[in-house]
Design a protein around this nucleic acid. Structure first.
Length: 262
DNA sequence: ATGGTTGTGTTACAA
């Protein structure tokens, strides 16, 4: 069984104590991190490697940045989506590890609407859809985890009316998220938990965490071959309640090993 | 109440 988690850490250096304790306690086989906010050279490699993880990093100064941590070697690494050679924003990294292709995704926020940032979000989603369609042609198990910055449906936020003008809720954003799923992917959490009121992000402001004013924007998407092996998926709210937390909390899933399927 | 908080090679901007 392979335990895979995704977590937007909101700066890996500011969050290092939280990240290290989480890796020790939760011990995911693969961790997909977003918003590391650091260039590759300054990533705290030694501290994380000391816990037994291999690293693949696509970093950037100040903003964005994604990484894959895995207890197995990571091969066939891709940094950035195809068609974004002029895109300086580090938001996608993919690799092959432990027999699974995995990607860490930090989809653009896209606010304010309308505007250049929203246009960038939509075109980035179009490139993600196109690349995912290519991945599906290989008929292999893959896991796309990350901060999608999309609230898929009204049941995924505490008060839909408050988000009506937000890029995370726009029909264009939601339609593209559905198009991604309609390629044949399974959204792991929603597949196993049909009910409302489960969130992965709570704003730092206004006591949102204490009031449970959250939204569900961190998602794990599975190819058919991975979905066939899905054992479990959940949101781990523990890290969000600690000192100096990220505003996001990890989402994780367990994928059965191929040799254990009969 | 057009607020609030966190992070960044910051002092404006992104989330």
């Amino acid at each position: 069984m392979t335990k895979i988690a995704t977590w937007n850490v909101n700066s890996v250096r500011a969050r290092l104590p939280r990240v290290l304790e989480w890796l020790k306690e939760f011990s995911p086989d693969v961790a997909l991190l977003q918003e590391i906010k650091v260039i590759d050279e300054n990533f705290p490699k030694m501290e994380i490697e000391d816990l037994g993880y291999n690293l693949a990093i696509h970093g950037q100064k100040t903003y964005n940045g994604v990484a894959i941590l895995s207890k197995s070697p990571i091969e066939d690494i891709r940094r950035g989506l195809p068609g974004e050679t002029l895109d300086e924003q580090a938001r996608y990294i993919e690799g092959l590890t432990n027999g699974l292709r995995v990607a860490s995704i930090y989809l653009p926020n896209g606010n304010p609407v309308p505007g250049e940032k929203f246009d960038y979000k939509l075109s980035w989603m179009d490139r993600l859809i196109s690349h995912t369609a290519d991945l599906l042609k290989n008929d292999e198990a893959f896991v796309l985890g990350g901060d999608y910055n999309v609230i898929p449906a009204d049941i995924d936020c505490y008060e839909p009316a408050r988000w009506i003008d937000d890029a995370l809720c726009q029909p264009e954003s939601r339609r593209r998220f559905r198009s991604l799923l309609n390629l044949g992917l399974t959204e792991a959490f929603r597949a196993l938990h049909p009910g409302p009121g489960c969130y992965s992000y709570w704003d730092y402001t206004g006591g949102a965490w204490q009031k449970d004013f959250g939204i569900r924007i961190d998602h794990i998407l599975l190819s058919p071959q991975a979905s066939d092996r899905l054992i479990n998926c959940d949101i781990d709210k523990t890290p969000r309640g600690k000192e100096k937390p990220s505003d996001h909390t990890p989402v994780w899933c367990e994928i059965e090993n191929k040799e254990d399927i009969f």
